[in-house]
Design a protein around this nucleic acid. Sequence first.
DNA 1: ACGTGAAATGTGATCGTACACATCACACGT
DNA 2: ACGTGTGATGTGTACGATCACATTTCACGT
Lengths: 337, 337
Amino acid sequence: MEPDKVRAPNIRDVARLAGVSYQTVSRVLNNSESIKDTTKQRVLEVIAQVGYRPNQAARALVTSRTRTIGVLTSQTAHYGPTTSLHAIEEAAREAGYLISTTSLATSDHAAIVDRLEHLMRQAVEGLVVIAPQVRVFDAIRQLEISVPLVTLDSTRRDDHRSLSVDQIAGARMATRHLIDLGHREIVHLSGPQDWIEAEARMTGFLREVDDADLTTHPPILGDWTADFGHHVGRELLRYRDFTAVFAANDQMALGLIHAFRDAGLDVPGDVSVVGFDDIPEAAHYWPPLTTVRQDFAEIGRRSVGMLLAELRGEVESSHEQVRPELIVRKSTAPPRI
Amino acid sequence: MEPDKVRAPNIRDVARLAGVSYQTVSRVLNNSESIKDTTKQRVLEVIAQVGYRPNQAARALVTSRTRTIGVLTSQTAHYGPTTSLHAIEEAAREAGYLISTTSLATSDHAAIVDRLEHLMRQAVEGLVVIAPQVRVFDAIRQLEISVPLVTLDSTRRDDHRSLSVDQIAGARMATRHLIDLGHREIVHLSGPQDWIEAEARMTGFLREVDDADLTTHPPILGDWTADFGHHVGRELLRYRDFTAVFAANDQMALGLIHAFRDAGLDVPGDVSVVGFDDIPEAAHYWPPLTTVRQDFAEIGRRSVGMLLAELRGEVESSHEQVRPELIVRKSTAPPRI
DNA sequence: ACGTGAAATGTGATCGTACACATCACACGT
DNA sequence: ACGTGTGATGTGTACGATCACATTTCACGT
C-alpha cells in the first residue's frame, strides 16, 4: 500500500521525460552554451515538474570539487566570531560556495586535530579559522593540511594567509587614550593565554605602556566573560593601586564596572574602564563604554574573498590588516587627583 | 619539477599496499566483524601511513546517506540562537552527524526558499530550524520537504516535531511578577512581528494581563536590539503612563534602561524593567536585570536527539516543552505610590 | 582422510553525475 | 553535387566507495 521510498529522480529520468539524452540535461544544468533554446526550456520544465535536484555527492565525486569551505570556530556565543561567521556564510553563498562549520569546545590538541580531520574528510577546498588559538597551527602543520587557509584575528605568520583587525594597534589606541587622560597606573585584564587575539591585545598594551615609560602589573588572564570580569574587579579592589583598567573585551569590562559600582566606586570618576570589540550593547551599558571597534562582518567577508582568490590561483598579498577604531564614550575620564 | 596535484589515495591504493582486496579495506573502515585481527591492523597501518581519508562523496553516493543535518538559522549574532547552534553542532558531531548551516539575512519568501533549496541540494537527512519565522513554514510546505524536521522556539504545529522553551509560560511568569509587585500599567516591547517566539511572548503577556483584568497599550514591535530599546524608551517617556516594561529580550531591556536613566528616572524606583533570555551579561547590567532564563544549549541538544530518534524511525512524542525560569534581580520593584 | 559449516576474503555491479570524444544535422561556399 | 565547418546532441567511461553475492580458507567432528 504505502509506496517504499521512491527514489529521487536522477538526471536520466529527466532526460527520458524530456526526450533528450542525459548529457543534454547535464549541459542545461551547467548552462553550457550550444543548447537550443527550445530544448533547454523543455528540460527546465521537466526539472521543475518532477522536482529534480542534482545530486551533489555524485557531482563532487566526478569533479572532485566540493565547493565547500570549512570554518573552524570556537564554541562561544560571542558577538565577534558569530558576526564574522555569518558574514563568511553569506559571502561564500554568494560565490556559490557552502560552509561547513565545526566548533572547538576545548582547546586541547586532540580536539583540534579531531575537528580538522572532520573538515578534511568533508574535502573542503579551503579553510577559515576564526579566533584561532595558538595550538591550531601546530595541528594544521601536523596534519599536513594542504588546502588554502585564512585565519582571522591572528598575528602575522608566514605560512598562510591571514586577515586581521590590527589588534595590537587597537590595544595601543585604547591604552594611549587612558595615558592621554592622565592615567599612570593602568591594569590590563587580558583574554585567555592561548588565544592569539588576547596575546596581541596584551602585546599592544605592554608596548604602549612601555613607550610611555610607565610600569604596570602583569596582565590578568581572563576568560572573556562578564562573570570573570566581575570576579577580577572584586579582587582588584583589595589593592586599589590603579586608576584605570583596560579589558580585552567588552563583556569583561562590564563585569569590572559592576564590581566597582558594587563597591561604591564611580566609573569613570574613580576608575576608568576601556573595553574592546564595541559589541552593540556597549553603547547602552552604564556608563556607555569606551571601547575599540572592529568590523567583524568586514573581516568575515574579506577572508572569504582572500580564500576564493587563492582557490582561483591568484596570489595576492598574503597578510591584510584592518584598522580598528577607538570609540570614546563615558566610561573614561581623567583620574581624580 | 613541481609534481601535479597528486591524487589522494583511494581505497584500492590502500588495499594494494596492504596486500588485501578493496572490500577488506572497506570492511575495516566500517568495522564489520569477521575480519582477522592481524589483517585489520595491517590495513589500519597502511591507512595511517598514506594518510588515507575515505571520500564522503563516494560513500554518500552509494549509500544515499549523507549523515548531514541541515540547520536554518537567522543571521543574527544573538546569544540564544548561537548557543543553541553550538550545542546542536556538538550533539550532532557526537552522533556521527555533521551540520550544514545556512542563515537567513532577510525574511522574504524568496530568500527562505533559496536557503531551503540549498540545504536540500546537500541532501541533508534532517532539518533543524532555529528561531523560525512564520514564513519558513510556508516555504517548507511549498517545497514539499520530506525530511524530518524539528523547530526550536516555536509554538505547537501539527505537521512536524518541535521543541521549545515554553515562551508563553515564560512571558506569563515575567508579567505575573510585575503584577504581583503591584504594577497595573505595564507596557510590552515585543520582538519583530514575524518571529514566532516574539509572537509567543506577546501572547503570554496579553493573557496574563487579561487574566488580571488589566488594560494595556498595544505592544510595541521591536527588532531585538538595544538601540531600538533605547529609542523606544525615549518615545515612551513622552507619555509616562506606565510603571513597568516587559521587554521581549534582554538587549532591548538594556536599551530601555539606558533611556530611562538618561531621562533622570531610577530603575527600578521609577520604572521596573523585565527582560527575557538571561544572557550572561544580564546579571552585570546596572541594575542587574530581572529576566526569564531559557536553557538554549539544552534545547539545542535535545532537538538533535529528537531528530536522530525520528531518523532511526522511533516515533516519540512530537512536541516537547522546556520550562523557563524567572530570575529576579534588581531591575524590578513595587511601583512608587 | 574427508565432508561441512563458519569465518575470512575477493569479484562484479551500482550509485548519479561530468568529461572526453563521437556523431548527427544543417547551412554555406565552391 | 560535395566537402567542410559549426552548432546541437548522444555514447562510453570514470570518479570512489558499498552492497550482494561468490569464493577461499580453515578448524573440527566423524
